[in-house]
Computed example of a mutant assay.
Amino acid sequence: MNLFFGKAKSKATAKDAIIKLRETLDMLEKREAFLEGKANNELKIAKFNATKNRRLALQALKRKKVFEANIEKINGARMTIETQMMAIESANVNLETMGAMRAGAEAMKNIHGSMDVNTVDSTMDDIRDQMDIATEISEAISRPVGEELDEDELLNELEELEQEELDAKMLDTPAPAMDVPDVPSHEPIARRRKSEEEEEAELKALQASMAPM
């Protein structure tokens, strides 16, 4: 605490400074309008007395020049204030931008404080493991319940059925016609007679051998 000069003044913020400058700018604009009115009035007096009273006309022109000089100074002050306001506004924007960026950096630091590359890699490995487990579970759920059939045995059985079908088709197909010479279905008469005579002779010989001596 300053015991000699009282309380220290608080630092002016950008917002407070801009408000104060705008108030000053409004005051200068009003002052400028007032002086312009005074200058125009002195010009009227000079014109009115130009041919009637040259001394009054000259005094009016002098006062007009003083008013115009003050107006020029006010214009310069207004230009300076407007430039200062733009500079403060730009600086305030930069300050706000920097504050937002600093807050973002702090947020990122807090986030990354509990996370590093190793943690991310470990998490991704866990995710992959869980996805593999989920895939295995899905496959186990979708697998049919019951005895699993041997695919090779089924294929062999199918090939046997196909072969049987081909064999059946080949048997059902008639053989192509061929020119075969006519063969008599009965024996020639001469051969048949000779055979009968031989059988008769054999029968007689058998009877003779069986007769009593």
Rank of each mutant, 00 (worst) to 15 (best):
L61T: 07
M85F: 04
A50C: 04
A46G: 13
E96V: 09
A50H: 04
M86Y: 02
E96K: 07
A77H: 06
E68I: 11
D116K: 02
M101S: 14
A50P: 00
T83V: 01
I71P: 00
V120M: 07
D132Q: 13
Q84H: 02
F48M: 13
S114L: 13
L43G: 11
E68A: 05
M115I: 13
V66E: 14
N75Y: 01
N92F: 01
M79I: 09
F48R: 14
K44A: 13
M101V: 11
E42Y: 03
D132E: 13
K64L: 00
A77D: 14
A69H: 06
L95Y: 13
E136S: 15
D125Q: 08
K73I: 04
D129R: 08
N53Q: 05
N110S: 09
R102N: 12
M101C: 12
D116W: 02
I71W: 00
I74R: 00
N70T: 13
A103Q: 14
K52C: 04
A60D: 01
R102C: 04
E89N: 03
G99E: 11
M85V: 11
A91C: 05
I74D: 01
F67G: 01
G113E: 06
E136R: 14
R128K: 14
M101L: 15
D125L: 07
D132F: 09
G99N: 14
A77G: 10
K109A: 15
R128E: 12
A87T: 09
T51C: 10
S122N: 09
A107V: 08
N75L: 04
I111G: 11
N49G: 01
K64R: 15
D129L: 04
E106N: 10
D125T: 03
V117I: 12
A100C: 03
A39S: 15
L95M: 13
E89Q: 07
V93Y: 06
A134Y: 00
T119K: 10
V120K: 05
A107Y: 07
L56K: 15
R54G: 06
K73A: 12
T83C: 02
D126V: 09
S114D: 09
M85G: 01
E82Q: 10
N53P: 00
I81M: 00
A50L: 05
M131H: 03
A50F: 06
N70Y: 08
I127E: 03
A107Q: 14
H112R: 10
N92D: 15
A134T: 09
S122C: 02
E68M: 12
G76E: 11
N41T: 08
E72W: 07
R102Q: 10
A100T: 03
N94I: 07
I45M: 08
